[in-house]
Amino acid sequence: MPQIFHPSANTLSRLTLFGMAVGPLGLLIVSYLLIRSPYQTGVRVIREQPVPFSHEHHVGGLGIDCRYCHTSVETSSFAGLPPTHTCMTCHSQIWSTSPMLEPVRTSLAMKQPIVWTRIHNLPDFVYFNHAIHIQKGIGCVSCHGRVDKMPITWKEEPLTMEWCLECHRHPERHLREKREVFNMEWAPPVPEQLEIGRHLIEREHIEVDRLTNCSVCHR
């Protein structure tokens, strides 16, 4: 009786069986890694900007407070992106002929806002509010990282739902005194943080059970 299958068919069949078992798992792992990779989350991805603005220079080097430019962060859902007028408060005098700042000067002269490339963009079904986070004692650094060390702005955290919930479930890990909210250097004291955090939850009337309600973020 002639052989129907070539000997290599043995290997092929084993491979197929193996692939059927491991393939779907592998596919899951790959897609899981993919959705958590910077390709999807944009974490630490450098985007080109019309002007290469350096927070490292302005915050770290010159010591300018976050709120000097992001004026509405304490009172509004939107932190506020400074109008050209704010840039020119200093740059009408300093670096006033720098070619790098030409788009800023043009913007002021033509009354055309500078179109920045947005780095932190939540889906439209998420209603994030800066003011409440600031007022209850979540530091800028908790979500934005050490902005004072960023020569060009990038996204430090993935801003995924899982990431948001981690803090909404355990705010005591991240809460700080209000006077430290804009402090870039502040880091949670180990191991007292949990105790301080629990105290702050009580003092600031944070209802942790409610923080994971769908409608807190989705309206």
């Binding site: 992106l81 889906p123 439209d124 079904f125």
Partner: peptide
């Protein structure tokens, strides 16, 4: 569509 709903976010072009 849910990510980019037909409404403007603050300062959106």
């Amino acid at each position: 569509e849910m990510y980019e709903q037909p409404r403007y976010e603050p300062l959106e072009p």
